[in-house]
Design a protein around this nucleic acid. Structure first.
Lengths: 354, 354
DNA sequence: GTGAAAGCGCTAACAA
DNA sequence: TTGTTAGCGCTTTCAC
């Protein structure tokens, strides 16, 4: 690989002039010198060594992205959007890590990012404990947290970009209620996850507005210790039995995310429960693949592209201006109606017999 | 951030001793010194600066991964597997790029990798033209190409890790034929893709063995210039009409990948064609989500984890030992039977009328 | 407008 | 066994 010295030699100038060209300081060079240097750079196919540059400047155009698992299409899409924004708007490249929602892995990744000189990171974490995030901040990382709203007040050290999960839960319940459902259930994996709390609150709030004849239950899937995002559909599949065993059985189900819903629908069909004739399902995320399930999955979609843009912008801004205070950003979800929701079977009966 | 000097000072030794500890050269230090240095490292939470190290050694523990789009769950899974192998077996981190199968983007990413000091890269490309890959190799990258078999002979510069696509096509056709199908079709997006050639060959070969009463057609989807992997399901959906318009209509369809199949099934159902009663579908990839479609999608699965492991191993091995010759690795696919394949409707009639 | 030179944090001879 | 030192390739004062 050619170095700045080779270029300087070929162009017959000093290395500092080459450096000035590299950094676009047009005003410091005569047009003639400038183009002579450019020519030399072209000829040698010279690309500056980032390690050297970083060693000098202290930063490097890389952004860390930590997601639970890119095998979950939700995070695959997120990675795509984040990468696109980072690349096209800031010329930053993406360092990707799958954390499996494991605190150790997250912490190790932070360590590595730091040692690579990366100063901006976006993390999708659902861990209750944000202490390791704050450690990372203390050591110089600008951290943006996805979908973990900060209303627990504590930490103004980390940016939070999230969907309005309360509203998401509210919308999902609202949609089912509009179709006449009265016995609703909200499905979540057991254990840790956090943003689901608000989703459940919104869901419950909407149901409780209808009075005592409406019910809102929360069903937790049984998950093993090592439960990962790739097993979400399997869990949904298994939870179909839990739902089917409920007495009375709910007629409208909301799941905390789309992959769970996809598994659930499959499991329900396996039990000869038809969606939406016997039971309606609403997912959350707005995965593009949800448009192609059978039936199409109604889902509360998050504005992923906008959120990705904001996250990238914040992470990079705060990494370059460490004095910028952390902030929270809330995005509004929107329900996408497809075919997985219909009138509840009871309502049909009720119409003729009550 | 603490530097090696701070550690040396605190431990009361020279920087080279610290360096030796960092690089685990136990034999060069007394046990006492060693642990004193370790202690100092711990106390200062010292992490060596990779940029400095890289500047010195010329390499950095990073691996590039270029995929068309992580929004395609196939590549999301691939990224997960590659990252896991790189991380757990080599302590390498992953630099991810979405190329949208665009040559410019691929070339730019190569440039960037080079300038970041990354010497090992795995690429999923379907571009006919491998010249930019060879350019990259010439400039010092160890390139491993996924699923682009090299039997065009030309390039021994790039490693090729691929599934036996001929066999995949063969297996898919074989499965349909075993169920009694005679009119088969193979669906692909229009334009570029490459590995599909062998899939089609295997598919055709299997069908032609049955003689003239069997037919194998290839259907190309109409795609725009900017067609991307995220639109695969949409394309499949649209292609359902193309299939439905064929006279005679095929009863068994194979698609070049699962996302296309998922869209196709949805489109067929939209046209009131039932899968598998009216028409059977076989996908390719073995996406985990294909187990949860309705009906479950029969698919020819590629051994993704093993392939990812091999790719990582090769990329890193060849980046550290540039004299290692490039090689090709072929993996055997396996058909996963689910519910999207059944006897053809004609065969049922035939059974009673012939 | 251009060049000389110091130094970012590390590694690896080589000396001691 | 431990320390000294010369760079790796770049950026950036500071002279000229």
């Amino acid at each position: 690989m050619a170095t700045i010295h080779d270029v300087a030699a070929l162009a017959g100038v000093s290395t500092s002039s080459v450096s000035n060209v590299l950094n676009g300081r047009t005003e410091k060079l005569s047009a003639a010198t400038y183009s002579r240097v450019e020519e030399a750079i072209r000829k040698l196919a010279f690309r500056p060594n980032r390690a050297a540059r970083q060693l000098k400047t202290g930063h490097t155009p890389m952004l860390g992205l930590l997601v639970p698992s890119t095998a979950n299409p939700m995070y695959g899409q997120l990675a795509l959007n984040v990468e696109a924004a980072a690349q096209s708007r800031f010329n930053y490249r993406l360092l990707l890590g799958n954390t499996h929602r494991d605190k150790q892995q997250e912490a190790r990744m932070f360590e590595d990012l730091l040692s690579f000189g990366v100063r901006a990171v976006i993390i999708v974490s659902s861990l209750n404990d944000e202490r390791h995030l704050e450690d990372a901040v203390a050591r110089g990382l600008a951290v943006v947290s996805y979908d973990r709203s900060a209303n627990d007040g504590s930490h103004s050290l980390v940016d939070h970009v999230s969907a309005d999960n309360y509203q998401a839960g509210y919308l999902a319940a609202d949609h089912l209620i509009a179709y006449g459902h009265r016995r609703l259930a909200f499905l979540v994996p057991g254990g840790k996850t956090l943003s689901r709390g608000e989703k459940i609150d919104g869901f419950r709030e909407r149901v409780s507005r209808e009075g005592p004849r409406y019910s809102a239950s929360v069903v937790e899937g049984r998950v093993s210790e090592a439960f990962g995002d790739s097993e979400l559909p399997d869990l949904g599949f298994a939870m179909a039995s839990q739902v089917a065993a409920m007495r009375p059985m709910p007629t409208g189900i909301v799941t905390v995310n789309d992959m769970l819903a996809i598994g659930l629908m499959s499991g329900l069909q396996q039990l000869n429960l038809r969606v939406p004739d016997d039971i309606s399902v609403v997912g959350m995320d707005g995965l593009s693949v949800a448009a192609f399930t059978n039936p199409g999955l109604t889902s509360v979609a998050m504005p992923l592209t906008e959120m990705a843009g904001t996250m990238v912008e914040r992470a990079i801004a705060r990494s370059t201006q460490p004095d910028l205070p952390a902030a929270d950003f809330l995005f509004q979800p929107a329900l996408i109606a497809r075919q997985s929701v219909a009138k509840p079977p009871r309502a049909k009966k009720a119409a003729s017999s009550t």
